[in-house]
Amino acid sequence: MVFNLVKKNQIQDTESRSIGSELIIPIIGFFFTIYYFYTIIDAPWTAQVAAFIVGALLIMFIIIFIIRSVKSINMGHGSLNFENLIKPKALVPKRLIILGITIAFIFIVPHLGFTITTFLFLAIAMMVLNNFQNKRFIIFLSATLSLGGYLLFIVAFDTRFPAGPFEIFMKGFF
């Protein structure tokens, strides 16, 4: 048991941390808190107090974390890089393409509707991830899923999914 703890400590010491990426959430939290404080400067005291208490504690935790991170860097236990955020590096292009397709999906879905946009998104994303192999199967699967989703969510449960040409056309049948 004790031997395991020593071993665990040794492993932790030898592993180099990507402190740059670990600082992203605290930095976002810090700037958001400052911005939040700015928006409540003129608000009544009772509307400020919860945010001031929680925000002050958050800033305190962030400062402690930054001090700890600087100490880790100085002791050689970590470096100011973003390694664990982007690894494996070979997947970065695919991940960025999927992110781009997702953004496009969000902007297109109000115009083309759920069924067509979902079909396009699934087909393109699956093809990108599958290196453009099994195209027929992917198209079949995407069509089945988008039509299945249409039947389940829009026809069966009457859910407020974005409507486009397909949904408007099919309204005459259902």
Binding site: I98, T102, F105, I106, V109, F114, T118, F121, L122, A125, M126, L129, N130, L141, L145, G149, T159, R160, F161, P162
Partner: peptide, 17 residues
């Protein structure tokens, strides 16, 4: 390859509802 796009498409539309 199939799982990830399905999750993204169906959950994003779900957040619109």
């Amino acid at each position: 390859v199939y799982m990830a796009p399905i999750i993204i498409a169906f959950t994003l539309v779900g957040s619109f509802v």
